[in-house]
Design a binder for these strands. Structure first.
Length: 275
DNA sequence: AGTTGGACCTGACTGC
DNA sequence: TGCAGTCAGGTCCAAC
């Protein structure tokens, strides 16, 4: 499921392959994937005929910065099964092909999204901070703004558990279930711990664990899980707790537990390593 | 305001 | 073998 490291891997892939390319035409095959727009035509009108000046990222979203008469940005939110690939025009269509960006020269960027939780949104301008998608977003976890002091200011008065807080995009952008579990493990803190009770050293460990886990995952191309929608990753071999309930902790041999979190979803953690 | 839970969606998996 | 039921989770929205 694409979180920050998977979005960053996709960003780097696209940056190398399509920077400078012109988008001739946009096709929307799953209308729901353009649901932020009145119609797919509105999306196409903002994108067609423009050049990909740069490929960026904000949280879990990939951003295509487009130059033309009216500069614009195509925001691609991958949802939980979204996947971007470069194809040659005429290659067989994927089963859940949601959208196609046809490039000058016979290639195309294909956006495939079986569960259709993701979407493509075109916005005017190049500044993510002006776009409704990112209005409430917190800092990038790999930026200088993400510090122990910042965490103190934003978590001090909250009663939610740590894993829920890490997945809140308004607190920090780009973290989902896999990395929230792994960050809590590496920081040595239980995912259920109420964030208002975190100590100063714990907040410092969280900042370091977040950076360490995300950087390593980016280096390894993200995480590939069972549903093969993300074929690039090697971080799955480095997981300590995510989807390892019932198995022995790789550090202390304690059995990894799965505990239901609000919403009925599970969090994975090691009773031996996490306090 | 912060928190919780349901809804959206499809493929993979489980159990009969 | 096949079919129904359950789970997975990013994000939004309604309700407490």
């Amino acid at each position: 499921m694409p979180e920050l490291p998977e979005a960053e891997t996709a960003r780097r892939h696209l940056e190398a392959a399509v920077t400078g390319a012109k988008i001739r035409r946009v096709e929307v095959h799953i209308p729901r994937s353009a649901r932020a727009h009145e119609s797919p035509k509105e999306l196409a009108a903002l994108v067609e005929g423009k050049k990909i000046a740069r490929v960026g990222r904000r949280g879990k979203a990939v951003l295509l910065f487009l130059d033309g008469k009216q500069p614009a940005t195509l925001v691609i939110r991958l949802g939980m099964s979204g996947h971007l690939r470069i194809a040659k025009k005429g290659e067989p269509r994927e089963k859940h092909l949601a959208g196609v960006l046809e490039l000058a020269g016979g290639r195309e960027i294909r956006y495939v999204d079986p569960r259709t939780f993701g979407q493509m949104v075109a916005r005017v301008g190049h500044d993510p901070d002006t776009m409704p998608e990112f209005e409430s977003y917190g800092p990038e976890p790999l930026s200088k703004e993400f510090t122990a002091d910042y965490l103190k200011s934003v978590l001090g008065h909250r009663s939610v558990g740590l894993q829920v807080a890490l997945m809140n995009q308004a607190i920090v952008a780009g973290i989902g279930k896999i990395y929230a579990d792994e960050i809590c493990f590496r920081a040595g803190i239980r995912p259920t711990r109420k964030v208002s009770t975190l100590t100063g050293p714990m907040r410092q460990r969280l900042v370091e664990a977040t950076r360490g886990v995300l950087r390593q995952a980016i280096r390894l191309g993200g995480t590939t899980t069972g549903d093969e929608s993300w074929p690039y990753g090697r971080f799955q071999d480095k997981l300590f707790v995510y989807q390892r309930a019932g198995e022995a902790c790789r550090v202390c041999k304690t059995t990894i537990r799965r505990t239901a979190m609000p919403g009925g979803r599970g969090m994975h953690w090691c009773p031996g390593c996490q306090r």
